[in-house]
Design a protein around this nucleic acid. Structure first.
Length: 491
RNA sequence: GGCGGCGUCGCCAAGUGGUAAGGCAGGGGCCUGCAAAGCCCUCAUACCCCGGUUCGAUUCCGGGCGCCGCCUCCA
């Protein structure tokens, strides 16, 4: 039935058809590298990471571009404040950006172009707009885009020129032909980074880079362009104007915008000062809790950040890992890892359960296809966890392959969400350590047999302090790495 | 003021024209030497309010109220 997407441009959910069959070309606005990104900034990174993974899950080839804005007022200001070069700031935070994405489990984009590496292309692009009469040069060397000349300005944000004019704030630059016009090129000021251009040295305006790099890497018409809702106006509106003015072709076919993160009821924002760095939140709750936190909501709705919610998310993720661990160890105990699934041999109960597994998978996929409804999909996944927990209580020998199938299915469905792929078990921490733990379990088993509970409990308590959790099941004991703090993440 | 979004259990959050998934928290029980995990039972009868359409609306329409975002750099 295919993937459906809510398109900001049409304000409707539409069936997705890529321009080139089987190949999705998507672009998402990346960071301005002047600081670590905050937990709110992490939302689009995670959301579009999942969009990308879902297309791949569905068999599409995806070319995903995410830019890095490494020349900008904020970088220049920060550099001045620290007394270092803008380049040094940009390099430092570009590096940090990559590190943080990795910590969030976000797959790297296929292309991560830096604005400073595309300046000549941008200059060409501006020249083209000037030649076509869509842009004009002011005396000092600033170049502006002539908004009124572009028919359809406002189609993305739903704004009319009249409204915009009425709402226009006091305009600093009186030399502009029209208050609505926006900067394509900023003339160099003393001490600022600058590049040569036919109309004078300077640097590109913010909107310009996205258009130039997106079209440079993906072609004149993109399938998908994404970003936060706060970018709809003016950023994306301006991108459309300049791109379509230059090429005469539709710039983007599906515009996707994620909702924003609130913090204590207000928008989380650097300028308001009410934010927490993504890296700190990941450190505290683990990457999967952060991903779960976002994915348990629809990507277009606003969400409120609280530590309670992060803690809940952490526990929810833990619940799934507990099941995986139980399944794995049950398979170990009963030599079930190699058993082949053969429907003929299953018990009646097993067949019913298998049918359920298949239905769950289908429902999960349908929800994901429906405008990436990760919240509903996760609902299906947790229902599966529940059913699996019931099923595994009493499994006939013939049905053992279903335990394996359950384990695999959770991994399979978790993969496009970037969840449940970790190994919180022994292999994540090395064989020797695992054998040591098992040795202690052996000793403790003996102690319990002798009813020397005091010592047995001390072993359990001390291991707990080391992040290793023991759970007794009658005579046997299963163990896992505890997930408080960084535990589940393999810490 | 203009544009857009949102208002579902204590908290988070899907969803549907025929009385509502899931997670977290809570209560009772089973299991256990104890614990942890798990299981079973329980946990929305005004789905913001008021009208309307309908045999029937939380779901559609209209009007309110409240909250949020954008209109300025911002994911």
């Amino acid at each position: 039935m295919g993937i459906k997407i809510y398109n900001t441009l049409t304000k409707r959910v539409e069936a997705f058809e890529p321009l080139e069959p089987g190949h999705v070309k998507m672009y998402v606005c990346g960071p301005t590298v002047y600081d670590y990104f905050h937990i709110g900034n992490a939302r689009p990174f995670i959301v579009f990471d999942v969009v990308r993974r879902w297309f791949e899950y569905r068999g599409y080839r995806v070319t995903f571009v995410q830019n890095i804005t490494d020349v900008d007022d904020k970088i220049i200001n920060r550099a001045a404040a620290e007394g270092v070069s803008p380049q040094a700031i940009a390099e430092r935070y570009t590096q940090a950006y990559w590190e943080d994405l990795e910590r969030l489990g976000v797959l790297p984009a296929n292309y991560q172009p830096k604005a400073t590496e595309w300046i000549p292309k941008m200059v060409e692009f501006v020249q083209k707009l000037i030649d076509k009469g869509y842009a004009y040069v002011l005396e000092g060397g600033d170049v502006y885009f002539r908004v009124r000349k572009f028919e359809g300005y406002g189609k993305l944000s739903g704004k009319s020129l009249e409204e915009l004019e009425a709402g226009a704030r006091v305009e600093v630059d009186e030399r502009k032909e029209d208050p609505l016009d926006f900067a394509l090129w900023k003339a160099a000021k003393p001490g600022e980074p600058k590049w040569p251009a036919p109309w004078g040295e300077g640097r590109p305006g913010w909107h310009l880079e996205c258009s130039v790099m997106a079209m440079g890497l993906l072609g004149e018409t993109l399938d998908i362009h994404g970003g936060g809702q706060d970018l709809i106006f003016p950023h994306h509106e301006n991108e459309i104007a300049q791109s379509e003015a230059a090429t005469g072709k539709p710039f983007v076919r599906y515009w996707m915008h994620n909702g924003l993160l609130k913090y204590q009821g207000e928008k989380m924002s650097k300028s308001l000062g009410n934010f927490e760095y993504a890296r700190d939140v990941v450190e505290r709750y683990g990457k999967e809790a952060v991903r779960y936190f976002y994915l348990s909501k629809h990507y277009r709705t606003p969400v409120n950040f609280t530590h309670e919610a992060m803690e809940d998310a952490r526990r929810a993720v833990e619940r799934v890992y507990h099941l995986l661990e139980e399944l794995d160890q049950e398979l170990d105990r009963r030599d079930g890892h190699t058993a082949e699934l053969n429907v003929e041999k299953l018990t009646k109960r097993g067949r019913t359960y298998l049918a359920y597994l298949e239905r769950a998978k289908r429902e999960f996929e349908e929800h994901m296809d429906d405008d990436f409804n990760t919240a509903a999909a996760l609902g299906v996944l947790f229902e599966l966890v529940k059913e699996a927990n019931v099923f595994r209580q009493d499994v006939a020998e013939e049905d053992l392959p279903l335990l394996k199938r359950t384990f695999e299915l959770i991994r399979e469905l978790g993969a496009p969400l970037g969840l449940f792929q970790e190994s919180p078990w022994r292999q994540a921490h090395g064989e020797v350590q695992a054998q040591l733990v098992e040795l202690l379990i052996e000793v403790r088993k003996e102690l319990r047999r002798k009813r020397e509970y005091e010592l047995a409990d001390r072993i359990r308590a001390r291991l707990r302090e080391l992040g290793i959790e023991l759970k007794d099941k009658g005579e046997e004991t299963v163990w896992s790495y505890a997930s408080t703090g960084a535990g589940v993440e393999g810490g």
